[in-house]
Design a protein around this nucleic acid. Structure first.
Lengths: 328, 328
DNA sequence: TATTATTATGAAACCCGTTTCATTTGTCTA
DNA sequence: TAGACAAATGAAACGGGTTTCATAATAATA
């Protein structure tokens, strides 16, 4: 591969001059600048980004670590963050860790080792980890509140979201509401469940819970089990949209009318939830705001962020076709 | 940030020795090795990956460039490639270029500049590009057959897929089949359409075509237009599953029974297509095989690949609930 | 015991773009 | 015209692991 010294030799100047032409960091005589430009053209020279970032200590890269690339929620988040990063002249380095804590940690180390300018982490688990030594790059954590040396936390008000959902289901006339709760090791799974639990406690409703992972197959299987365990269910609060969609599939297959016999509500408001028929009632998360704030926090902490600051975004209920007020 | 010389100083050895301990590239006396390990432990030293890959000329990274991270087909492909890369000790660097050719080219240059070990590209357009100078890293191109200096091409037999789909729709009794064709600048859009066209020509069927981008909103809008233009339609061949799902949504909203009045078939077999109700009949692409072959090709071209070699994978029809043989 | 083969180890070069610093050339002011 | 100052430019150092090469020390063979 051609390098800057080679180009310099060809143009009859020093490497420093070539560098100055490329980066516009200092003035160069028009004559030499032309010679350099020509030599670059002739050789298809592309500066080695590795050498550059070794010296600069910046790779113009932001890392994003997500538990699963197969979950549309994370994918939509990644898409938005990618846009934002590109806009600001950064690359987004997406790490998919498949809910594996070792991989997650490795990804973080790696980002540090490649001189990334910051990292955005959606933890695979909210449990305390011993391994959290301080990183040398800014780290903002999404969808979690675990204790660690991070620059900022940022999440949506899931607790409130679950309460909103319960309120709505009760308003719609549901009496036997089952919560399909997500993994209790995750923050989203736990706080959504706690929102449900507290609502039940406050309103003297018996809790009905079924555990489920955040994926299709689990959703399918756990819905079957739910129907077995709670035959009189008339409302379901699913831990996310993926699971809600799986749930609907089973209900549909069994010819259980939704929302007439069972009302269903999801969580996240992924793009698909308004695309399926019937459209899914769900708790909307402001993904765009989330992404934009996360990017701000990681890029210029000094402005919006306090060290270790917590930012909580509100969620809203969007009613579509899987819930309906019973006017009995 | 702590560096190797610092660690060496602390351990009372040379940087070379530290490097040897870390990489196991040469034997080191047990005593010094312990001192080094201890110093690493004490300082939380993580070798700077940038410096390492500058020297090694390998970043243990392979790049994946896709047109859109919002399309589940690409996402599933990325997920699989990510698994494969991780298995083999590489990172997958995902570049989302949003169907922008400039960004695509920039991504390619960037991968070259960071010493990536290879790149897998799903082109945003199949048109000839002038810019295709030879890259210094192996490049395998998916879902395209445009002419350029690449290591290998790899795609599914879309032409055959479209014919399979048509055959099936005709078998099911459809007489007025409309093709919602994808962007004709893409290889998938074009070859799927050509498969449809040739089938029509061979069987003396009048072509009915509507153009559509690969996304939800376009799918929604174009289905409306389709129904306007071809009121007697009884079969729809959608350019991909996303569009097929949008199409179903409109049909459902208008109370047009599927498959009884209109039969519908998609393309890609993304995970969602079997999760919605009714389940979507579609053309299945062997994503896992595709990913696995792509990874092989990019990583060890010498074995499976001929320079510029073409690899074409077969597709299959999977009949689900949006098509049905009419036993009239 | 002399000699050769090993093993251990550090100094220095290397990868390559960037930047500092000193020098040279040219310009402007007194 | 001398002195002061600005612009242009290259040599060299830098960033941080890795590897080569030479040397020193130890072990094995004659």
């Amino acid at each position: 591969m051609i390098n800057i010294r080679e180009v310099a030799r060809l143009a009859g100047v020093s490497p420093a001059t070539v560098s100055r032409v490329i980066n516009g960091t200092a003035s160069v005589s028009e004559e030499k600048r032309q010679r350099v430009l020509q030599a670059i053209e002739a050789t298809d020279f592309v500066p080695n980004e590795v050498a550059r970032s070794l010296f600069k200590r910046s790779a113009k890269t932001i890392g994003l670590i997500i538990p699963s690339i197969r979950n549309p929620y994370f994918t939509e988040l990644a898409a938005k963050l990618d846009e934002l990063a590109t806009q600001r002249g950064y690359r987004l380095f997406l790490h998919n860790v498949g809910y594996d804590l070792d991989q997650e940690w490795a990804a973080l180390q790696q980002l540090e080792a490649i001189n990334a300018d910051g990292a955005i982490l959606v933890p695979s688990s909210n449990d305390d980890r011993a391994d959290q030594r301080e990183l040398s790059i800014p780290l903002v954590v999404l969808d979690s509140d675990f204790n660690g040396p991070v620059s900022a936390y940022l999440y949506c008000d899931y607790y409130q979201g679950a309460q909103l959902a319960m309120e709505h289901l009760v308003d719609c006339g549901c009496r036997e509401i089952v919560c399909i709760r997500g993994p209790q090791s995750t923050f989203s799974g736990r706080s959504r469940y706690v929102g449900y639990r507290d609502y039940c406690l406050e309103h003297h409703i018996r809790q009905r819970v079924v555990d489920c992972d955040y994926d299709f197959n689990a959703g399918l299987a756990m819905t079957e089990e739910l129907l077995e365990r709670y035959p009189k269910v008339d409302g379901i609060l699913a831990c996310n949209d993926i699971v809600a969609i799986s749930t609907y599939k089973i209900l549909h297959k069994r010819n259980i009318p939704v929302p007439d016999q069972i009302q269903l509500i999801g969580f996240d408001d992924i793009a698909f939830s308004s695309l399926i028929s019937p459209e899914l009632t769900t708790i909307h998360q402001p993904i765009d705001d989330l992404a934009s704030l996360a990017m701000d926090l990681v890029l210029r902490q000094e402005e919006r962020a306090v060290k270790g600051g917590r930012h909580i975004l509100p969620v809203t209920l969007v009613q579509r076709e899987t819930t309906k007020r019973k006017d009995a």
